[in-house]
Amino acid sequence: MVSLPGRDSLGHADDRTIATRAADGDIRAFEILMRRYGSLMSAYAARIVNPTDAEDVVQETFVTAWRDLPNLENLGSVRSWLTTIVTRKSIDLLRTRREQQSLDNVEVEDPSDGPAETANATSLDEALSAVLSSLPEDQRRCWTLREVAGYGYQQIADELDLPVSTVRGLLARSRSTLVREMEAWR
């Protein structure tokens, strides 16, 4: 039985304990939360905005989390709570970008990143990650909001300012591409 010294054991404590301390004003505990979930939040954001904007979204996510953590009822669910914030912040950034673009009257291009580099993938998850990266941005975004964040079609349409029919079409295309890759791994 190991008795750990309190000061060093914070990093080993479970989410609820860390989140409770952070909610009570402990910045060190909050830093542990950021280190624990920074990569996950970046991965979420990168699939909805784009990798270069992900860092800003993650920053805003944690600043909001710090402010609102004292109001979180179930502190043990801090992980899923953070993912709802990062999804929200990602959508907010997209909206800001849309408004800027309509002001600047810029034609928005949505190029695909080209064929997926799945040749080096050593697992299904990795291969799907590569395929997801190769999808056109709007397909990737819709798919992530639907399948990972659990948004409904109407909600996605509202948030992205798209007709529901467009969302359905984008989802069908993204699913077709991802399923093709997934089937190759069966």
């Binding site: 920074g38 996950l40 970046s42 991965a43 990168a46 990798p51 997801l132 992530t144 990972v148």
Partner: peptide, 12 residues
């Protein structure tokens, strides 16, 4: 897929 990205620090 997102968990795998996070584990690989893909976008970190």
């Amino acid at each position: 897929v997102i968990d795998a990205d996070a584990a690989a620090d893909q976008f970190a």
